[in-house]
Simulated scan of single mutants.
Amino acid sequence: MATQVIWNGNDVDGFYTSHLVTGTGRHTQYSHLGKIKDVYAPNVQWHGPLMKELYGQAAVIHQTLALIGMIPDGAWMPQHICSNPCDEGGTKVAVRWIMEGHHLGYGELGKPTGERLFVMGMSRYHIVNGKIVDEWVVYDHLALLAQIKLGQMEE
């Protein structure tokens, strides 16, 4: 039986984020890539690892494609999702997740090594009028680099 987690902030209009839990609970990055323009506001602000501050849907698409390029077989698996109404309007949603895959592409992690990667992270979304207006992503980028280096040292 398939699992599907849907955030429904106002109990009237359901809202599907780009990070739905479907099937067995494993989410590969490819399956919801086309939804970014549907779920993110045109003026979205994205805050992420390495103090990245991005603005707009195109920047979110670029960041997502960069991650897919480095870990193309990566599976994103949410572990806990919660939400609360926000005094600023809208709803804040928090997602604790893990991601695992192999370093198979070029990018911020260097040239491809084939090493297995595992990382735990948190994503926080501010959703207003059914669109993500802010996203904060936190994960241990240094742990990914360490996993690559340790894997190379084993060989």
Rank of each mutant, 00 (worst) to 15 (best):
M1V: 14
A2C: 08
T3L: 15
V5H: 14
V5N: 09
W7A: 13
W7F: 15
N8F: 02
G9H: 10
G9W: 10
G14Q: 13
G14I: 09
F15Y: 11
Y16T: 10
T17M: 00
T17Y: 00
T17Q: 00
L20N: 14
T22Y: 04
T24R: 13
T24Q: 07
H27C: 06
H27F: 10
T28G: 10
T28V: 05
Q29R: 12
Q29S: 04
Q29Y: 07
S31F: 04
G34F: 07
G34M: 12
Y40A: 08
G48I: 01
L50G: 04
M51P: 02
M51F: 07
M51T: 07
L54T: 12
Y55H: 06
V60Y: 06
V60H: 06
V60N: 09
T64H: 11
L67M: 12
M70T: 15
I71C: 12
P72T: 05
D73A: 01
A75L: 09
M77E: 13
P78C: 07
Q79R: 12
H80Q: 13
H80E: 13
C82M: 06
S83V: 01
P85S: 15
G89L: 11
G90F: 09
G90V: 15
T91E: 13
K92Q: 12
V93G: 04
V95A: 02
W97N: 05
M99G: 12
G101F: 01
H102I: 01
H102G: 01
L104P: 06
G105R: 01
Y106C: 01
Y106H: 05
G110F: 14
G110T: 05
K111D: 12
T113P: 15
G114T: 06
E115H: 10
V119K: 11
M122V: 15
S123Q: 12
Y125C: 01
E135D: 02
E135L: 03
V137K: 01
V137A: 00
V137G: 00
V138Y: 13
D140G: 11
H141E: 07
H141C: 05
H141G: 06
A143R: 12
A143H: 15
L144N: 15
L145P: 01
L145Q: 09
K149I: 13
M153R: 10
E154T: 04
E154N: 11
E155W: 08
E155T: 14
